[in-house]
């Protein structure tokens, strides 16, 4: 009886103005998704644990809320919405390509997010499944930007990276995996000096050494991509830069150039993402409100190798920013 007046840790009641702002924000975003030809997908809150296991980079096992069904099977409250899209694309809709999904549902985690202290979070996002072209990445990024704008957010930046740039540079070295991972960690932390020292010890040659030590500083205006074409460091890294440049050009052509920046030093989720990746930041908010990228190996997990790209917006973070700044309601 003694807990009846309270709600569990990491949960929230959303009332009155806040509830209205949430609904209006979601509706404004959904309108953008529908306008772009994305169709809604509603998936169950409870799924089998097996569907979500093995994606440590994105959802570690210890962060999933689990329960056991009557047959002794492990269930989870869905911790993510891309995985259900991939499951549906590889099963019920395996003959339809490309698929364009959007969702606006809640996800559940067993640990509180560091910002806002929530375990139940609303995510709104889109996936294009079955289209390997850079046009699909550009469409996803443009849709993400347009949805933030329509939600009423004015001031934000979407930073783009390409995981194959780092992976390509590493392919050119003979370094053991542990050392590659150490370099990855230094780049991810933007530990400039530590990286320089490590690269010296690894005795890497000329262009490769220069490209690696520069990597943490490769962020800012998209024009810096042009400078990277001068290096000679293998086809994979070169293709990555070409691919990213094409995506940037396409998004800019759609009129969203002013919102773009690049950061090739984004190397934290390399086993999940396979191409262009991106994160959206609003000034004064210390964590991304938007994230996404190309994940060509996920659908394969459900038996159907398929290229895919997508994004999701953390609606609770977005509402916190909109609410605090009173930047106005959805347009």
């Amino acid at each position: 009886m003694m807990w009846k007046l309270y709600i569990p840790d990491g949960e929230q009641d959303i009332l009155a103005d806040a509830a209205r702002l949430k609904r209006e924000t979601e509706n404004a975003m959904i309108e953008v998704f529908r306008h772009g030809g994305f169709e809604e997908i509603v998936t169950p809150a409870l799924e089998f644990y097996d569907s979500f296991s093995g994606q440590r980079d994105i959802i570690p096992e210890e962060n999933m809320m689990k329960l056991v069904d009557g047959e002794g099977r492990i269930l989870v409250l869905r911790p993510d919405l891309t995985v259900p899209c991939a499951r549906v694309a590889a099963t019920k809709l395996r003959d339809v390509r490309p698929l364009k999904f959007f969702y606006c549902q809640n996800v559940f985690r067993s640990k509180k997010e560091r910002y806002l202290d929530l375990k139940e979070i609303t995510q709104a996002g889109c996936e294009i499944i079955g289209d390997p072209r850079p046009d699909a990445d550009a469409e996803i990024i443009a849709t993400a930007i347009e949805s933030l704008l329509k939600a009423g957010l004015k001031d934000f930046t979407v930073e783009l990276g390409q995981v194959n740039y780092f992976k390509g540079l590493m392919n050119e070295t003979e370094l053991p995996f542990a050392e590659k991972d150490r370099l990855r960690h230094l780049i991810d932390k933007k530990d400039f000096l530590g990286l320089e020292q490590r690269v010296d010890e690894d005795r890497l040659s000329g262009d490769l050494k220069k490209a690696l030590t520069e990597l943490p500083a490769l962020y800012g205006d998209v024009s810096l991509l042009k400078g990277l074409r001068q290096y000679r460091f293998g086809a994979k890294a070169k293709d990555a830069i070409e691919n990213l440049s094409e995506v940037v050009a396409n998004v800019a052509k759609a009129g969203y150039g002013p919102y773009l920046a690049v950061d090739l030093g984004m190397v934290s989720e390399l086993s999940y993402y396979t191409g262009v990746i991106f994160q959206g930041f609003a000034p004064g908010f210390g964590t991304p409100i938007l994230s996404g990228g190309r994940y060509d190996h996920l659908v394969e997990k459900f038996g159907e190798p398929t290229a895919a790209t997508g994004f999701s917006v953390n609606v609770d973070f977005l509402l916190d920013i909109l609410g605090n700044r009173e930047e106005g309601n959805a347009e």
Partner: peptide, 18 residues
């Protein structure tokens, strides 16, 4: 240590300091 967003928004000052 540097805040991840400040690194971009106050880049010039921070890079100079480093």
């Amino acid at each position: 240590v540097v805040n991840k967003v400040s690194m971009k928004t106050k880049n010039e000052m921070i890079v100079r300091l480093i």
